[in-house]
Amino acid sequence: MMRILLFLGTNIAVLLVASLTLRLLGVESYLNAQGINFTGLLIFCFIFGMAGSMISLFISKWMAKRSTGTVIIETPSNSTEKWLLDTVAELAHEAGIKTPEVGIFPAQQSNAFATGWNKDDALVAVSAGLLNRMRPEEVRAVLAHEIGHVANGDMVTLALIQGVVNTFVMFFARVVAHLVDSFLKSRSGGEGGLGFIGYFAVVIVAEIVFGILASAIVAWFSRFREYRADEAGARLAGTGAMVNALARLKSETELPDQMPDTLRAMAITKGQTRSLIEQLFASHPPLDDRIRALKEAAYRQ
């Protein structure tokens, strides 16, 4: 539950910062003075809504390295590192993308992630625990899953979706505040209204409500792309290896999750989800569902 609250809090905080920026720059005052201009408001919300997502996307590799302590393999120092580089290069070639940077981060939980602002400037990293406990064919399947994320352009798509939902959250919050203000003025003969503080308070409350709904949409897409990455991993490394890798990850779901919240959506696993709320805002589907989907796809072929 704490992770969900942090996830929602982070998204809402971004919206509130953007709202405060609009207020400080005088954008809202200008639009209100002109009588609400829906086209102009939507344009401004789009600019500010997309800005945060695009900035996060462009600095994603830098943030990932710092937050996880990932060490990039420039020159392999042992046979494991050489195998990692060769395997990622092979999988990237099969997927038709440029070979990503490859790194290892010091977490004992078996995990991996991919990030980067485009297909040809990506990073794929695995945890030390994954290398220590998984068989080579299972590690290869995990790497194939992450290469699938890169080849599918999932990082860019997720950033765009986040930017779009941010845009509409900011837009509709201000429309709601405008309607409330207009209603109060009509009830008082044009003398009342929300005023400066009241208007901003309504905007904040509306953004919190709409932001929670928007977070559920973003989480849904994140779960959807995990199935696609699993399919890519199965194509590149074999269905059996991909299923075995997910089953191995499932056996470790009770271990502490050491992945930073900012990268959890990019990781191959987030553990099991139990409550309805957790399922609604989870970035990953349950591992049992992912394994079942792979087996059913293999059966249909």
Score class of each variant (00 low, 15 high):
residue 5 L to E: 04
residue 8 L to G: 05
residue 9 G to C: 05
residue 15 L to G: 14
residue 16 L to C: 03
residue 18 A to K: 01
residue 20 L to G: 01
residue 21 T to R: 00
residue 26 G to P: 13
residue 28 E to F: 01
residue 31 L to H: 08
residue 36 I to R: 08
residue 37 N to K: 12
residue 39 T to W: 14
residue 43 I to Q: 12
residue 49 G to H: 13
residue 50 M to S: 12
residue 50 M to H: 15
residue 53 S to K: 10
residue 57 L to F: 11
residue 58 F to C: 15
residue 60 S to I: 11
residue 66 R to A: 11
residue 67 S to W: 11
residue 72 I to V: 14
residue 74 E to V: 04
residue 77 S to L: 12
residue 81 E to Q: 10
residue 92 A to I: 01
residue 92 A to G: 01
residue 97 I to V: 09
residue 97 I to Y: 08
residue 99 T to Q: 08
residue 101 E to P: 02
residue 102 V to K: 02
residue 108 Q to G: 05
residue 109 Q to N: 09
residue 109 Q to S: 10
residue 113 F to T: 00
residue 115 T to L: 06
residue 118 N to W: 15
residue 119 K to H: 09
residue 125 A to S: 15
residue 126 V to P: 06
residue 127 S to E: 07
residue 127 S to V: 05
residue 132 N to I: 00
residue 137 E to G: 01
residue 141 A to Y: 04
residue 149 H to K: 00
residue 155 M to L: 10
residue 156 V to Q: 08
residue 156 V to I: 14
residue 157 T to S: 12
residue 161 I to C: 08
residue 171 F to Y: 13
residue 171 F to M: 01
residue 172 F to P: 08
residue 175 V to H: 08
residue 176 V to K: 10
residue 179 L to V: 15
residue 184 L to F: 07
residue 184 L to E: 04
residue 187 R to M: 08
residue 188 S to G: 08
residue 200 F to T: 10
residue 201 A to G: 01
residue 202 V to D: 08
residue 216 A to P: 10
residue 221 F to W: 12
residue 222 S to G: 06
residue 223 R to H: 06
residue 224 F to V: 03
residue 224 F to I: 01
residue 228 R to H: 09
residue 229 A to M: 00
residue 231 E to K: 07
residue 232 A to T: 00
residue 235 R to H: 10
residue 239 T to D: 06
residue 242 M to D: 02
residue 245 A to E: 06
residue 245 A to S: 14
residue 251 S to D: 14
residue 251 S to G: 10
residue 257 D to C: 12
residue 260 P to S: 07
residue 262 T to Q: 09
residue 265 A to R: 11
residue 267 A to T: 15
residue 268 I to P: 14
residue 271 G to I: 05
residue 278 E to V: 10
residue 285 P to M: 05
residue 287 L to A: 12
residue 288 D to T: 09
residue 294 L to S: 12
residue 296 E to Q: 15
residue 299 Y to H: 14
